[in-house]
Amino acid sequence: MVIHTYTDLPLGDRAAFELACARHGFAPIHFDISGQIDPDDPAHGELLVVRRGAWAQAYRIDSRGQWLRQFEIDLNSRFFRFAPHT
């Protein structure tokens, strides 16, 4: 699956992403999301890159939704809080 925006996410992931954003005072539009093959480990799949302003974090996509838990941890730690929206 090619991911260019959050609307390209599987329906369950998209809903969880929207809820995580809302819980932390964001809207999905505050983030740029794209998928890319892991350059260091192409055999193990795709990375999901989430950007807000100058800040970016890459999450490994798996069938268990681990990236969503990691994204929420980053939101809890305010990783994306002070990044200006572009």
Rank of each mutant, 00 (worst) to 15 (best):
A27N: 06
V50F: 03
A22Y: 03
L75P: 03
L48W: 03
I33D: 00
A15F: 07
G45A: 09
G65K: 04
S34A: 02
D40G: 05
P28M: 10
A54F: 12
I73C: 08
Q70T: 05
G35A: 07
A54V: 12
W67T: 00
I29G: 13
E46G: 00
I61K: 07
I29K: 14
A43G: 10
A16T: 12
G53S: 12
A58S: 12
R23Y: 02
Y59V: 05
R69D: 14
R78G: 01
Q36K: 11
F26L: 07
V49L: 08
R60H: 11
S63Q: 14
A58M: 01
G53V: 09
G25K: 07
P39K: 05
F31M: 11
D41K: 02
A15C: 07
G65E: 06
D32S: 13
R64M: 14
C21S: 09
P42T: 08
Q66N: 14
A58H: 03
G35M: 00
F26S: 04
W55Q: 13
A56G: 05
Y59T: 04
I29H: 14
A16G: 07
P42I: 09
F17G: 00
D62T: 00
A22K: 14
R52E: 06
H24E: 01
R51T: 15
I33C: 05
D74L: 03
S34Y: 05
D41R: 10
G35K: 06
R14F: 02
W55V: 15
R23C: 05
C21M: 10
P39E: 03
I29T: 15
R69Y: 11
I37A: 01
I73A: 09
Q70I: 03
E18M: 01
L68T: 11
C21K: 04
L47Q: 03
W67K: 00
Q57F: 08
R64I: 11
H24V: 01
D13Y: 11
A16C: 06
A43H: 12
Q36W: 02
A43Q: 13
E72L: 07
F71G: 02
G35W: 01
L47K: 00
D13F: 11
S63T: 13
G35F: 04
Q36D: 00
G35E: 05
P42G: 10
L47E: 06
S77N: 13
E46Y: 09
A43L: 15
R52F: 07
H24F: 06
A43T: 09
D74S: 10
H44P: 02
F71N: 04
I73E: 10
D41L: 09
S77V: 09
I29L: 15
A58T: 02
I29E: 15
P39D: 02
F31T: 07
